[in-house]
């Protein structure tokens, strides 16, 4: 069997047999503790500066951000953004309770359907799980309330994110996800969600003469509506 052949060739190279049980236990303990390594100092700053770093990095990577003070303002903010981009007032939305609870009636021209995305959807609205300040990166894990197709099929992706969900480093975003698992969220029993996307700006390609051009296969525009729900981060 190839599995045995591969493992024994590796062990032959390492000049040992299978790892003794005590050493295996040590490696399992390392995985259970999943220690962090060096975290760059750039994100080790006070909360307001962390949020500002996130916003600055999103913009550097050609994304856009609008900050709103109250969840009730989100529908109007989305309606305005779409009008400003000359986009129709229709979108596919993640069936997430927080998004569904928004007062959509306040933007009566807007129409949405809560489902996975299809090829014909021009605009999607996703629920952001976390933002990572060090590079302006969104963490978008899949679950029934956050379909993956919303991140890749539409021409324009809008992500609603709470400022309280912005962390400094990638490791802190994983910590949030690990904790959510323990709290019995959809990612129960410590199992990874099927898909976790880190998204940094709209899609692009450098394949033609190594020159970055926006608008490859994924969304051509990435817009973040940032809800300032964290008093410490203002």
């Amino acid at each position: 069997m190839s599995k045995d052949a591969i493992l024994s060739a590796i062990r032959r190279g390492l000049k040992r047999g299978p790892l003794p049980e005590d050493q295996q236990a040590m490696l399992r303990a390392r995985m259970a503790a999943h220690p962090r390594h060096l975290i760059p100092a750039r994100s080790r700053v006070a909360r307001p500066a962390q949020v500002a770093l996130f916003v600055g990095n999103v913009e550097k990577e050609f994304g856009t951000v609008e900050r709103v003070a109250d969840a009730a303002e989100i529908p109007a903010a989305i309606a305005q953004y779409l009008a400003g981009q000359n986009l129709p007032p229709r979108f596919v939305m993640a069936p997430h309770p927080e998004l569904q609870a928004l007062p959509w009636g306040r933007a009566p021209m807007l129409a949405h359907e809560a489902r996975r995305a299809q090829a014909s959807d021009l605009v999607s609205v996703q629920h952001g799980f976390a933002g990572v300040a060090e590079t302006g990166t969104l963490m978008l894990p899949s679950d029934p309330a956050r379909p993956t197709t919303l991140n890749i099929l539409a021409d324009t992706e809008i992500v609603v994110l709470r400022s309280s969900a912005i962390v400094g480093a990638y490791e802190e975003a994983w910590d949030r996800l690990r904790t959510a698992g323990k709290l019995g969220d959809p990612h129960a029993s410590g199992v990874m969600p099927r898909n976790v996307m880190f998204v940094t700006g709209p899609s692009r390609s450098a394949d033609i003469e190594q020159t970055l051009e926006l608008g490859a296969h994924g969304p051509r525009r990435l817009h973040i509506v940032l809800l300032d729900d964290d008093p410490e981060a203002r």
């Binding site: 996975r116 060090e134 590079t135 379909p147 197709t149 099927r194 898909n195 998204v199 709209p202 899609s203």
Partner: peptide, 24 residues
Amino acid sequence: ATGQDFSVYTTFSTGPKRAPDLDG
């Protein structure tokens, strides 16, 4: 590689679609 701070998409895939998922 490309001199970006981070690539646009870094994606972790773990197993097939879970029962209640809408895609995958």
